[in-house]
Amino acid sequence: MYTNIKQIDSHKCFDGEQLRFEHASSTLNCTMNFSVFLPAQAKNSSVPVLLWLSGLTCTDENFVTKAGAQQYAADYGVAIVTPDTSPRGEGVPDDDNGAYDFGLGAGFYVNATQKPWSEHYKMYDYIVSELPSVVGSELPIDFNRCAILGHSMGGHGALTIALKNPGMFRSVSAFSPICAPSQCAWGEKALGLYLGADKEAWAEYDAVELLGKGKPKEKLPVLVDQGDADNFLADQLKTQLLINAAANADYPMSVRMQAGYDHSYFFVASFIGEHIKFHAKHLL
């Protein structure tokens, strides 16, 4: 049935299918897994798609099993494609100390330029080019009607990838995004090791810096949800910097502070229905 991907799991879900695949990635030089929810509408025609990017320590399965997104995607007839968060496998380097914030599970959606990371860690190219090409050629999914969203490190990825690729997405949203990785410990470590010491290179993967470069060519609909009880808010996420940068760039964004919510998937599950509704308005 499939040419370039191998199905490794399948479950009926809200009259659609929750699928999991593996494929040989030429971009990342390893075997990669990704998950796909196909709504029932995909049996008759190609459907629009949400591209979900997960956060630190996650695989392609965390969102699939914890967020409860399939019910809402089924209602609107949209697919959800969920890639892994980093290259994996034999020969793929990891953090020397096994830390959670770098290496495996922490690709930060950048193209690494420094050895030994540069051989495998090209998650930006994988998300922007290879994965849509592979999935679009094998499944009834229309990447011309695509939105992007993510959580934490994945929220950073969603915002930066959308800002850097005008015309690729209809809308973008994020939960608890790392807004200014050049100015937080997670980002300083990851960008420094993947990209080297040149902070001009870091700025290409920093939403606040990208907005600060001037008026973006495209102003997508943007929704950001951030819990005010998130223990990473002040030191790592720095949502206010995104709010300020968007205002200075005259880039309208809906940034909502949600009272009492933390950084967990309980937060994501509480508002994922609203995010899918937001994207459906621009996809359907």
Score class of each variant (00 low, 15 high):
96 D>F: 14
96 D>M: 15
97 N>S: 14
97 N>I: 04
98 G>M: 12
99 A>K: 14
99 A>G: 15
101 D>M: 13
101 D>C: 15
101 D>K: 11
102 F>C: 02
102 F>W: 05
105 G>A: 09
105 G>N: 11
108 F>G: 03
108 F>W: 15
109 Y>E: 01
109 Y>I: 09
110 V>C: 14
111 N>H: 08
111 N>T: 10
113 T>A: 12
114 Q>P: 03
115 K>I: 06
116 P>F: 13
118 S>F: 10
118 S>G: 01
120 H>S: 08
120 H>L: 08
120 H>F: 09
121 Y>W: 11
122 K>C: 13
124 Y>E: 14
124 Y>D: 12
125 D>S: 15
126 Y>E: 03
127 I>A: 04
128 V>M: 05
129 S>P: 00
129 S>Q: 15
130 E>N: 09
130 E>C: 08
130 E>G: 05
131 L>A: 07
132 P>D: 04
133 S>H: 09
133 S>Q: 13
134 V>G: 01
134 V>P: 00
136 G>L: 08
136 G>Y: 04
137 S>I: 00
137 S>T: 03
138 E>R: 03
138 E>I: 06
139 L>N: 04
139 L>A: 08
140 P>M: 06
140 P>K: 10
141 I>M: 06
142 D>Y: 07
143 F>M: 06
144 N>I: 00
146 C>A: 13
147 A>K: 01
147 A>I: 03
147 A>E: 01
148 I>K: 01
150 G>K: 02
150 G>D: 01
154 G>F: 10
154 G>W: 10
154 G>I: 10
155 G>A: 06
155 G>T: 01
155 G>M: 07
156 H>V: 00
157 G>I: 04
158 A>G: 00
158 A>W: 01
159 L>Q: 00
161 I>S: 03
162 A>G: 02
162 A>M: 14
163 L>W: 04
164 K>I: 02
165 N>S: 05
165 N>H: 14
165 N>W: 02
166 P>Q: 09
168 M>R: 14
169 F>G: 01
171 S>I: 05
172 V>K: 02
172 V>Q: 00
172 V>D: 00
172 V>M: 02
175 F>T: 01
177 P>F: 12
179 C>G: 06
184 C>Y: 09
184 C>L: 03
185 A>W: 08
185 A>F: 13
185 A>S: 15
185 A>I: 07
186 W>D: 02
187 G>Q: 05
187 G>S: 05
188 E>G: 11
190 A>Q: 11
192 G>H: 06
192 G>A: 09
193 L>W: 10
194 Y>C: 05
194 Y>P: 02
196 G>C: 13
196 G>L: 11
197 A>D: 15
197 A>W: 05
199 K>P: 01
201 A>N: 10
202 W>F: 11
203 A>R: 14
203 A>H: 14
205 Y>A: 07
205 Y>T: 07
206 D>P: 06
206 D>A: 11
207 A>S: 14
208 V>Y: 03
208 V>F: 07
208 V>P: 02
210 L>T: 09
211 L>T: 07
212 G>V: 12
212 G>Q: 05
213 K>I: 11
213 K>Y: 09
214 G>S: 13
214 G>V: 12
214 G>E: 12
214 G>W: 10
215 K>F: 11
216 P>T: 08
